[in-house]
Amino acid sequence: MTAIVYVAAALAEIAGCFSFWMWLRQDKPVWWIAPGIASLCLFAWLLTLVDSDAAGRAYAAYGGVYVAASLAWLWAVEGARPDRWDLIGAGVCLAGAAIVLLGPRSA
């Protein structure tokens, strides 16, 4: 369930930020930010659903998923194929996220 929440949160955050990008950098109308704000609110709510004992740990692990999802967005939405360095970097980030989220904790 955590993986699904992280992926949904990443898509919501990227979509929200992308709407601001399009408004500010691609001269889209100001109304483009309205769905972006809603999407960013959804992102924040989704992160509260992660089963973690600490918010900071949940956010840190999310960072790896965000990197990988951003590269998927790059390819799917922006039409730019990630190169091998992008993929290696995303793999390293996902490995780090797994360590943060799944590493054994002492009581």
Rank of each mutant, 00 (worst) to 15 (best):
A15E: 05
V100A: 11
S70C: 09
A3S: 15
V30A: 13
A3C: 12
D53C: 00
A54I: 01
L47V: 02
D83K: 00
I88Y: 11
I14K: 08
A76P: 02
L40T: 08
V100C: 06
G79D: 09
G36T: 01
A76N: 06
I88V: 15
A44I: 08
A72C: 13
D51W: 00
V5P: 01
A8I: 10
A72H: 04
Y62R: 03
L11M: 14
P35Y: 07
V67S: 07
M1A: 14
A98Q: 03
S106P: 01
A44D: 05
R84L: 10
V7A: 12
F18C: 03
L42Q: 05
W73S: 04
W73K: 03
W32K: 02
W85A: 07
V92P: 02
V67G: 06
L74A: 10
L46G: 07
A44W: 07
A55N: 08
A8G: 07
V67E: 08
A68D: 01
A9C: 11
A69K: 00
A97N: 03
R57W: 13
L87I: 14
L71S: 03
L102W: 09
L40Y: 09
W85G: 02
D86M: 01
A8S: 13
L46S: 05
V65A: 11
L94S: 07
F43C: 10
W73G: 03
G79L: 10
L49K: 13
V30W: 13
P104Y: 09
D53T: 12
A72V: 15
D27E: 13
G64A: 08
M22C: 10
L46D: 04
F20N: 03
A15K: 01
A107G: 13
K28G: 04
T48Y: 06
L42F: 11
A95P: 01
I37P: 04
G16E: 08
V30H: 04
G64S: 05
G96T: 08
F20C: 06
L94A: 09
L102M: 12
L94I: 11
V7E: 08
V30M: 12
D86L: 00
D83R: 02
A80F: 02
G103H: 07
V92I: 14
I99L: 15
W75Q: 07
L42I: 14
L42N: 03
L74Q: 11
Y6I: 10
G96V: 09
L71W: 03
F18A: 12
W23V: 15
F43K: 06
L101C: 01
A97W: 02
Y66L: 15
A95R: 00
I33P: 02
A107W: 11
A80T: 09
Y6D: 10
V67W: 09
A54H: 14
A55W: 11
V77W: 11
G89R: 02
E78H: 06
S52Q: 09
F18P: 00
K28H: 12
M1V: 14
